[in-house]
Write a protein that binds this DNA or RNA. Structure first.
Lengths: 210, 210
DNA sequence: GTCTATATTTCGATAGAC
DNA sequence: GTCTATCGAAATATAGAC
């Protein structure tokens, strides 16, 4: 064989290193934005020489794009419980819980997404126009069905989705502000209380508790 | 006189140029973040040579700090209608309306604030710990009073404030995403509908409509 | 696949004529 | 107070030995 490293072994190395770099990149992009992040900082955090990053990801923008796509995929799967539910209390309640849990577990990914959208979505505009638009249309249709069945008040489904996104992601994107006002990071109990508060106000707000 | 420009005239020039630069800087910082913004871009947008920016603002960070302080001041004054109200329907309703109107009129300022907080508030941490904390304590005390008087449901005042901030600012910070899903920027009527949707869900959600 | 050294560009900031 | 020219630092990206 010309190559001492077998394809499968090489794939393992590539996958492991890509994951390591992506994890470091997510953190640095979240802390500094795309413009403020440097390949050197990402390399240091990953414990690799800077040139290795360019071996696995051709450009800084390619690396950034992968980080944004990751959080997007995670969010897309968060609504499966909503689709299976028979009504808004279980469905929207489960969706809020899932989104809150993602804010807690993946705050950096959420921040990178916020950064990307805030600056005009230069690298994921096509996702907004295709995948996200179709995904949203499906969920608002479900909400309209629940309204027609008398299971909740006739609220605007789009603005309801915006409120759920805004509120749940706020605990990630503005986590630093919340921690400062709270006198420190939210404890497990405080996170549970936050979930319940958000669920209670929104579910009552759409008339799903009566 | 040694100086051909009288102090008052000089002050007028300084004020006018500072305002011009701050306006351009807000737009560029909103579009690119602190790290992605360049003094050259800001100078081009203001129609001035780059060196003039350094004449009025010693460093890029000084200029950025002024932009962040501006939006903070605007938000602080948005709750005056809340303080004067006799209950949550008028008070919180007016606060939501004021915050929505600011998101519509100052989307760039809102984005710069979001950028700053998302990245750990390196230049306005002291504001969070002093002014914002005191301001929030005053408003949550007012909400607790309304709850004690039986004017609204016993929701957690802090999480209610987070929801109001998150939802209203979402229309500025994620305005690009909303416009994409909406098929274009929100019309006057769409903005009015957004305001009413947000008010309706939150006011019903805190039990202030019954 | 890894890493050192470096090419090239662009940034923030300043000097100095006007 | 304005503007051209430029310095020094730091960035992305690559070349090439191992």
């Amino acid at each position: 064989m010309r190559d001492p490293v077998r394809p499968s072994r090489r794939n393992e190395i590539r996958q492991a290193n890509e994951a390591l770099i992506l994890q470091a990149a997510e953190k640095v992009f979240a802390e500094a934005g795309f413009g403020g992040a440097t390949m050197q900082l990402i390399a240091d955090m990953a414990g690799l020489p800077k040139a290795n990053l360019h071996y696995y990801f051709a450009t800084k923008e390619d690396l950034y794009r992968r980080v944004v796509q990751n959080i997007f995929e995670i969010w897309l799967h968060a609504a499966e419980a909503m689709d299976d539910a028979s009504g808004p209390i279980a469905g929207i309640g489960a969706y809020i819980e899932a989104k809150m849990e993602i804010s807690r577990r993946h705050p950096d990914g959420s921040k990178v997404w916020a950064y990307e959208v805030m600056h005009g979505a230069p690298v994921i505009q096509d996702y907004l126009e295709t995948t996200l638009r179709e995904w949203t249309a499906g969920r608002t249709a479900l909400i309209r069905k629940w309204i027609a069945e008398g299971k909740m008040a006739p609220v605007d489904p789009d603005h309801l989705m915006y409120m759920i996104w805004a509120t749940t992601q706020h605990y990630a994107d503005f986590g630093h502000q919340i921690a400062t006002l709270n006198g420190g990071p939210l404890s497990d109990a405080a996170w549970a209380a936050a979930k319940e508060s958000v669920k209670a106000i929104i579910l009552r707000g759409i008339g799903a508790l009566e």
